[in-house]
């Protein structure tokens, strides 16, 4: 057993774990955050995507011990109280989800994309989410959702910049 301390959504979680414990199981079983889903065991579906130190990773392919001392953000950590994150708003407004199972992973993956590329083209969005499978939407409304989020975030950034001036 190994002692790990992982900061999840700003809250420190300490636990003694088997080295083989996957990060996704740490999040779901030990931290009680079940918004991160498991959709396969071959690292291909992307449903378990979370941010580790800001970068999107598949938490089914990371050991909890590897995440020791790192900061993890899950879908539960995005909204600020009642205020949804712009990406969540985008998914809601553009009907970017149906059954919702792939959605947390899609959102977390989009989060990384928009941090690296605040104004991606549609084809860049499609490339960026190619590690996240959705069986319901045919992706079109997901692309719309990410595009809409990108516009909102850019607007907020420029509004903040204007306020700062």
């Amino acid at each position: 057993m190994k002692d790990v301390t992982i900061t999840v959504n700003g809250v420190e979680h300490r636990a003694q774990v088997e080295p083989r414990l996957l990060l996704v199981h740490f999040l779901r079983e030990l931290a009680g955050l079940t918004g991160t889903h498991i959709g396969c065991e071959t690292s291909l579906c992307g449903a378990c995507t979370v941010l580790v130190d800001g970068r999107a990773v598949k938490s089914c392919t990371v050991l909890a011990v590897q995440a020791d001392g790192h900061k993890v953000t899950t879908v539960e950590g995005l909204a600020n109280g009642d205020r949804l994150h712009a990406i969540q708003e985008g998914f809601w407004e553009e009907h970017g989800l149906q059954c919702g199972f792939c959605t947390p992973g899609m959102i977390m993956c989009s989060h990384d994309l928009l941090k690296q590329h605040p104004s991606p083209s549609d084809s860049e969005i499609r490339e960026a989410i190619n590690g996240n499978l959705c069986r319901c939407t045919g992706y079109q409304h997901i692309v719309n959702a990410v595009r809409s989020a990108s516009r909102k975030m850019s607007k907020r950034v420029s509004a903040r910049a204007a306020a700062a001036r």
Binding site: T42, S43, Q66
Partner: peptide
């Protein structure tokens, strides 16, 4: 050796690889 883990861990999850010791060089 465990580097990024993206080749080794998928194989271990399917129990196609069962190393006795993982040396994480991360």
């Amino acid at each position: 050796i465990l580097a990024g883990g993206h080749s080794l861990l998928p194989a271990m999850k399917l129990r196609l690889a069962q190393p006795a010791l993982l040396v994480d060089i991360g």
